[in-house]
Every structure is written in C-alpha cells, then in structure tokens.
Simulated scan of single mutants.
Amino acid sequence: MNRLLIQPVANTEAERNRNKTLHKDVPFSESPFRSKLADGELAALERLHPDGRARFWGTRPFLDKAMRQVELGDVALFAWDKHIRAIGEVGVSFRNQAFADELWKEPGDADSFVNVYSLITLDEEVEIPYQDLADVSDGRLSGPFQSGRVVRDEVLVRQVLEGLGRRAAEVAEAGDKYVESRLEQGLVVELENFLTSEVTYGRTARDVTVHRAESLLMTEYVKAHSDLEFRRLRSAAGISDMYVLRPEGAEIIEAKGGFTRERVRQAVAQLLHYAPHRPKDVEVVRLTALFPARPDNDGVKFLHDLGIDCVYRSVPGRFERLEAPAARRTHMKPVWNDNVPE
C-alpha cells in the first residue's frame, strides 16, 4: 500500500524553504550537506539520484510516527494559494535533524524539521483547486490545509490518485524524459541504480505517479530475477523498458507505474510499437506488461487477447505472472516481428 502526503507550503517560512529545496536541486553529495548524512542515508540517496543532486522536503516531529511508514513511491501533494501546486514522488525517506537543519533552519526559527525525504520526480506545473481534491476524496480531504498529514487509507489514496487523473501521466513522462536524456548523453543508466524495495508502488494507484516509478519497479523486478540478463532495447520506436534474451528469443517488458485500465492500454500500445522495431537479429517470442499490482480482470483479458503476459508485484520482491494463452501468443508473434504474409 502507498501513502499520500498532504504538505501545506503556505506560510512565510514554508515559502522560503520551498525556494531552497523544492524548486531547485540540492547538491547533497557536496559540502556542507554530505557531512550531515549517515553512510546508509548517503548510499540510498546516491542509488536513486546518481548525479548527487535532488529535491527535498520534510516534516516536523509531530509526524514522526507516520513518517516512519513513508517509503519509496509514496505521493506528496504540495498545497498553497488554495491549490495543489506541485506533485512529487517520494524517493529516500529518513529522520535526520542535522541534515534537515542544514537544508532549512535559519536564525530565529522556533522549531526544526527532523524528517526528510527526497523527491524522485516533481511536477511543478499543476494547479488543482482544493475543491477538486475534495470532490475526488468525497470530502475527506478538503482545504485549507494547516498542517502536514500522511493518509494511509488504501482505498482513499487510490481514489484520490485515480481521481486526479491526467496529472499522473504528466509526471511519469517527466521521469521518462530524465532517463532518456541521460541515455542520450551517453551516460550509463543501470537498472540496478533505481531501487530500494518499494514499490508498493503497488503504489496503487496510478499514479500520481509520478514516475520514476516504472524504473523503480523494473529494478525490483531485476533483483527478483538475478539469473537473467536484462537489457534496454533501442529502436526507431524509442527505448523500451527492458528485454531479456532467452534461448528461444527475446521477451520485451514494459513497466508501468500504475495498474488502471489507462496504464494497461499504455503498456499495450508501447509493446506493440516496440516489438516490430526490434533489431533484425532479435526475434520477439514474448511480450510482458509489468505492473505494481494486479490490474482488474478486464485489463488482464485485454492483455491476454493480444498474447501479452501480465506480471504484477504481489509482495515486495515477488512477482506473479499471468501467462497469455499459448495459442494467442503464437497467433500474435508474426505481428510482433513484422512478419505477416501480405
């Protein structure tokens, strides 16, 4: 299950702090920040933010208990001026007052932040009125928001994230562009760099996914299948999430950060686009859509009708595969390989 963080950023101090760490990257691997991080905290940050820079936010001690449950893939809604004005996805979450003070505290501040989290992605272009949030939550989340809150009700979180709809895809796209930009610069983006164990990212929802979620989910999947060699597939259609070479041919895998019908349709579209553009020496024998939780029955049937396997995260580090009928796969292979007789 994922959590939803409501983060008011409305008073003078909060506005000052968001300009320090929410609207610009913090070079956490450099002085004076690095010395305030424990070795494990630094290592975790460097796994998710290999360039040594990240956006950060935090909470005060009254949220200690709730923040201990916050983890990778949880979604933060940043609220000010009567709107949700930024949506982010939690990366590394930890309690470290010294680091928090280095980030935010100034002379005259009456209180300290103690809980800190990095953001894997942040969409700063949103403008969602409080009323919209109230509507999608059936009135359970309505502004003005005076203090931070961690929502742990799985049904409510899913309802809100799905209700916010299109925003999720926008943030996910930003994460995808980050990965692609690093590849285009010739930098190595190893799948192993993008994980902890989230991903409860059964994360539910869709999503306001904020997106690096797909990379995080992929990485957990890679770690759960250490006997296989995973690669990225470059083609005229773009860069696929992963493919695996097996003796009988290639399996192309597309990971999605949510598991709604829209996400299923996105996975299908991308798989069917990637497959015919594979390298000519690679025969595609299996297409697989990877999700953080099980799509509904209609979603699974849609995949299976096209010969596509459905794999989903059942518990941390474990994945279940719902195989498409063999006859469907056989029927679709000529399509995947652009080998249909004319």
Rank of each mutant, 00 (worst) to 15 (best):
A172S: 13
D111P: 00
L156P: 10
H211P: 11
G91K: 01
P32N: 07
E220L: 11
R232F: 06
D64Y: 04
F302I: 02
L37S: 03
E342F: 12
L216Q: 09
A44F: 07
R55L: 13
D241E: 05
R18I: 12
V70D: 03
T260W: 05
E184R: 15
I87R: 00
S112V: 01
E13I: 15
N193S: 14
D101L: 02
W104L: 06
E162W: 05
E262T: 15
S197A: 15
I308E: 09
E46G: 02
G165T: 09
S197C: 11
Q146E: 13
R234Q: 11
L287G: 02
R85Q: 10
A250F: 10
A98F: 03
H83V: 02
L322I: 10
I120R: 10
R203G: 14
S235M: 00
K105E: 11
F194T: 05
F230K: 00
F56Y: 10
D111K: 13
P316F: 07
D81M: 02
G202V: 11
W57S: 11
L183T: 03
R329G: 05
T288I: 01
K65W: 01
V189K: 11
Q159S: 11
E283F: 10
Y117K: 01
A326G: 07
L287D: 02
E154C: 03
D138A: 15
E251A: 09
V284K: 00
D298Q: 12
D51A: 15
K65D: 11
D207M: 09
E229K: 14
S235V: 04
A269S: 14
A43T: 13
D25Q: 14
R318C: 01
A86G: 09
V244W: 05
E30C: 12
R318I: 01
G299H: 08
I6C: 04
R203W: 07
V285I: 13
D298T: 11
Q7S: 13
R85T: 12
L228D: 10
G299L: 07
R60N: 06
G307I: 03
H211R: 15
P129E: 01
R182M: 12
V244I: 15
F28V: 06
Q270N: 12
K280Y: 05
A76M: 07
P8V: 07
E220K: 08
S197L: 14
A54S: 14
R3M: 07
I6V: 13
G186S: 09
Q146P: 00
S240D: 11
D109V: 10
L22H: 07
V268F: 00
V208C: 05
V244S: 04
D281T: 11
S181G: 13
V90T: 08
Y243D: 01
V208D: 08
A172M: 08
V210F: 09
E323H: 09
M1N: 11
P292C: 03
T288D: 01
G249R: 02
F302C: 04
D74E: 02
G202P: 11
S215N: 14
P107M: 01
L303V: 03
V188C: 07
Q131Y: 05
H211M: 12
W57K: 02
L303A: 04
D296P: 06
L191H: 14
H23R: 14
W104F: 10
